[in-house]
Design a protein around this nucleic acid. Structure first.
Length: 301
DNA sequence: CTCCAGGTATTTT
DNA sequence: AAAATACATGGA
């Protein structure tokens, strides 16, 4: 079976750019990029399913390779994919802002049509934020894969294995020692298990965060949790809750990108960073994402 | 061997 | 309030 998700503003949508970002040189175990499509497994209503996502004629095409579909699971996956690839956005204003900055104008051409790649699953997003703190990304992706392949579930299709991120309940009962064995630091092991318990107890969820009145109250709920500082909170708010103006302060990738573009010269110059971001009101998250994109080297770029 | 990684909590000035 | 330090370990 195939279902279809129409894309608004197709003049600012480039599927190959999105796929390239997904496959930019890191090994994310939670999806599989192929020629022209990406495959991802889901577990919904106790049922595993596998979906192949490709692009044609102004729409994303979802081919349901495994698992029975119901109206509710189709709706859930459609919403997930729309969030994942930020399909509702109109980027016209963002590109106008980029073009106004001499150092960044090239991005409006080179990265044209690249949508903000989100992380719709809040638990996965928080776990990934914790894992990624203060270690290089290659190692972070290895830790994620070990976690997923040890405590997640998977399905097999066409001789390939597709992994599903472990549920909070599966991690909530763990002892830190077993994550230490996967080479998590003691602190990260404790943070992750604590957060899994919060999810399992429904003390945190997307609806709970969305019910709060503003960005700062959502940020505070997150940073009150041990192991979540401003960087992780803002990262999650932009990757999972689609906050438009969230800046992961302290992010070494942002700092390196700004230095590489000669926008700042001192990594501690927070004022210069804020002044720079103030040129992009409402687009701070997108700008951050494009700065990260600029750090990845594309052959021929 | 040294320094740095998509930081955070804790301790010390 | 601001600055220094421990945490942990792979990669360059």
């Amino acid at each position: 079976m195939t279902t279809s998700i129409p894309i608004s503003q197709t003049q600012h949508f480039n599927w190959q750019e999105c796929l390239w970002y997904l496959n930019r040189g890191f090994d994310d175990c939670i999806y599989q990029v192929r020629a022209g499509s990406v495959r991802r497994a889901f577990e919904l209503e106790g049922q595993q399913m596998l979906v192949d996502i490709s692009y044609a004629d102004g729409s994303l095409k979802l081919q349901w390779l495994a698992g029975l579909q119901s109206t509710s699971t189709i709706n859930h996956v459609h919403q997930f994919v729309a969030d994942w690839f930020d399909l509702e956005r109109d980027l016209t204003s963002f590109y106008t802002h980029l073009q106004a900055n001499k150092s960044l104008a090239y991005m409006a051409d080179n990265f044209k049509g690249l949508r903000f790649i989100g992380m719709p699953d809040l638990f996965e997003s928080l776990a990934w934020g914790i894992i990624g703190q203060q270690i290089n990304l290659s190692f972070a992706y290895k830790l994620k894969r070990r976690l997923v392949e040890t405590y997640g579930t998977s399905l097999r299709y066409d001789n390939e294995q597709y992994w599903i991120f472990p549920s909070p309940a599966n991690l909530a009962s763990l002892e830190p020692a077993v994550l230490r064995d996967l080479q998590f630091s003691q602190k990260k092991a404790e943070y992750l298990i604590t957060i899994a318990k919060l999810f399992a107890d429904n003390a945190i969820s997307k609806p709970i965060l969305f019910a709060l009145p503003d960005f700062l109250s959502r940020q505070k709920l997150l940073t009150d949790i041990r192991g979540i500082g401003v960087w992780t909170a803002n990262y999650v708010l932009m990757k999972s809750l689609k906050e438009n103006s969230s800046i992961p302060y302290g992010d070494v990738g942002i700092i390196n990108a700004l230095i590489a573009h000669s926008i700042i010269s001192d990594k501690k110059d927070v004022k210069a960073i804020d002044a720079f971001y103030s040129e992009f009101p409402g687009w701070e998250s997108y700008l951050t994402f494009y700065l990260w994109r600029s750090l990845a080297v594309k052959p021929g770029n």
